[in-house]
Design a binder for these strands. Structure first.
Length: 512
RNA sequence: GGCCCGUUCGUCUAGCCAGGUCAGGACGCCAGGUUUUCAUCCUGGUAACAGGGGUUCGAAUCCCCUACGGGCUACCA
């Protein structure tokens, strides 16, 4: 298969929102495809109609739209190997299942749920280590291996409910290769005769995925580690179908684990841990329950992708911040780790911080303007942009901007009591009153002029910066935080500055 | 229970395949510096080879066992 064009697929089941593990799997597929100038395909695996959740499919589409990971082929893009929804491919699977039966590699099974239940109970009580429908138990069940041919014919004609099961060889070693874990060997005797074709005349995942990957000329299957146990079954299917020459390479990605405790990340974890598990906000159509998403939490898609790529893969260098192009360039399957990764919310914020600090002021100002508008605050775009430039490095998200910059838009409503207690001395009002005329006379009202005049005042009064500046900051900002004070003064203007100082002198209690 | 995968600082990880480094980086945390303050930023520090056996002059690296963690075990994907 060496000179085939690389083709990979992301094959979600529309049973709900994707979580970040799914997005990461898709991302690795995308990176691998692009690295090798290959195709990235979306295939919807909706062969279980009972688990279908409305909205899940469009959620998947919106997610990749937001992340900026376009598919080359898929349910929207189309492509020459369509359709890309398994429910629309119903007709293609049965022939392969029947072919396997005809060749003695699979068989019809007519067992009722009760009979299967009975079989399980018996296996349990007998303490047998081999469980399931397997090379032993199949001899005692109702199937085309045990029934006389006429009876089988009759049952099939009657359209009795039946399934097709793969006939696992009794005692064989199945050698498989995983690109991440290298060579693995499974004993066929420990495998069971999985249903490959259901009584609703739809294939199970195992058959559908093998048939479609073959028909769609998939060269590499990159999926979650939860599929590793069924790899020997899939390999056997390729062999039975006579497709071993075209069998794709397999890579099973380590799982993303809960941040605390153990276990793989699941839907409920997010709310408890205080970080999203979903890329986009999701509302459960049945319960109406809303789960938060990275987008809505304020993550940039580039940051989201970046933090995901580092969860399980590393470039072997110290680089941590990657553009999508850089990721494509650097990515390789052999640098994917083998052990599960725990998600670290702190590091996630750090990634967003890195992107935020590098973002264009104007772009950020546009986003911030929306927040300000919601707060009924009017300001010139150029003013907002200037504010953003001053405070963006202090924030992790755009939504942090307000707390970092409200004083550029309105006088403080309260004063930080800790700072008041520590830095608002008995003579502070007096000092500010003395400073007042200096500020009144300062012209032009510009940062550097303000600095020069105020510093001259401080020197003349022999006071020291802290004695003067911190009380002023308290008046203008309400606390000890914020960027350069002279810049703040320039920005809020002479009137604003003087008003706030006056207000502070009256309202800040002089306990000390 | 059975089958399979995994295990390096609190977290993400480099190093392992081709044994020899004070086991490196990042996040977090702590300290110092810068600053009019807070934050940013800079510097420094903290902290790990799951345990036990082998093989070897020498093991985080190779082998075995144990422990622990995880996944799978449906007519789900």
């Amino acid at each position: 298969m060496p000179d085939r064009k690389v083709r990979v697929r992301f094959a979600p089941s529309p049973t709900g929102p994707l979580h970040i593990g799914g997005v990461r799997t898709a991302l690795y597929n995308y990176l691998f495809a692009k690295k090798h100038d290959g195709d990235f395909i979306l295939r919807i695996e909706d062969t279980d109609k009972n688990r279908y959740v409305p909205g899940a499919e469009s959620y998947i589409l919106e997610t990749f739209d937001w992340c900026g990971l376009p598919f080359d082929e898929g349910i929207i893009e189309g492509g020459e190997y369509g359709p890309y929804r398994q429910s629309e491919r119903k007709g293609v699977y049965e022939q392969y299942a029947v072919k396997l039966v005809e060749e003695g590699k699979a068989y019809y099974a007519f067992d009722t749920p009760e009979a299967l239940e009975e079989m399980r109970k018996q296996q349990e009580s007998s303490g047998s280590s081999l469980t399931g429908y397997n090379h032993q138990s199949r001899k005692e069940m109702r199937n085309s291996l045990t029934l006389p041919p006429e009876a089988v014919e009759q049952l099939l004609d009657e359209e009795a409910h039946y399934v097709i099961r793969i006939k696992i060889p009794e005692d064989e070693e199945i050698h498989v290769r995983d690109e991440i874990r290298q060579d693995l060997v499974f004993q066929s005797s420990t495998l069971d005769d999985k249903v490959i074709f259901k009584s609703d005349r739809l294939p199970t995942y195992h058959l559908a995925n093998v048939v479609d990957d073959y028909l769609m000329k998939i060269t590499h299957v990159i999926r979650g580690e939860e599929w590793l146990p069924s790899l020997p079954l899939h390999v056997l299917l390729y062999t039975f179908l006579g497709w071993e020459e075209d069998m794709p390479a397999f890579a099973h990605l380590p799982l993303i684990l809960k941040p605390t405790g153990k276990g793989k990340l699941s839907k409920r974890d997010g709310e408890k841990m205080g970080f999203p598990v979903f890329p986009l906000e999701w509302m459960d159509p049945e319960t109406g329950e809303v789960s938060s998403g990275y987008k809505q939490e304020g993550y940039f898609p580039e940051a989201f992708i970046n933090l995901l790529v580092m969860l399980g893969w590393n470039p072997g260098t110290a680089q941590e911040i990657f553009s999508l192009d850089e990721m494509v360039e650097a990515f390789s399957l052999d640098r994917v780790g083998r052990s599960g990764a725990r998600f670290d919310p702190d590091k996630a914020r750090w990634f967003n911080h890195q992107y935020l600090a590098k973002k264009d002021d104007q772009e950020l100002a546009n986003e911030y303007a929306r927040i300000l508008r919601d707060k009924k605050i009017e300001a010139e775009p150029s003013y907002i942009e200037k504010v953003v430039g001053l405070i963006k490095e202090r924030a992790d998200f755009v939504r942090d901007f307000w707390d970092q910059s409200f004083f550029f838009f309105q006088a403080p409503q309260e004063y930080d009591q800790k700072i008041v207690k520590k830095r608002w001395k008995q003579d502070s009002p007096e000092i500010l009153k003395d400073l007042f005329p200096i500020l009144e006379k300062t012209a032009p009202w510009e940062r550097d002029v303000l600095e020069k005049n105020v510093k001259a005042f401080i020197e003349y009064k022999e006071l020291g910066m802290g004695r003067v500046m911190i009380p002023v900051r308290l008046c203008l900002v309400g606390s000890g935080m914020g960027p350069d004070l002279f810049t703040i003064m320039e920005m809020i203007g002479r009137e604003g500055t003087l008003d706030r100082i006056k207000k502070g002198i009256h309202e800040i209690p002089g306990e000390n």
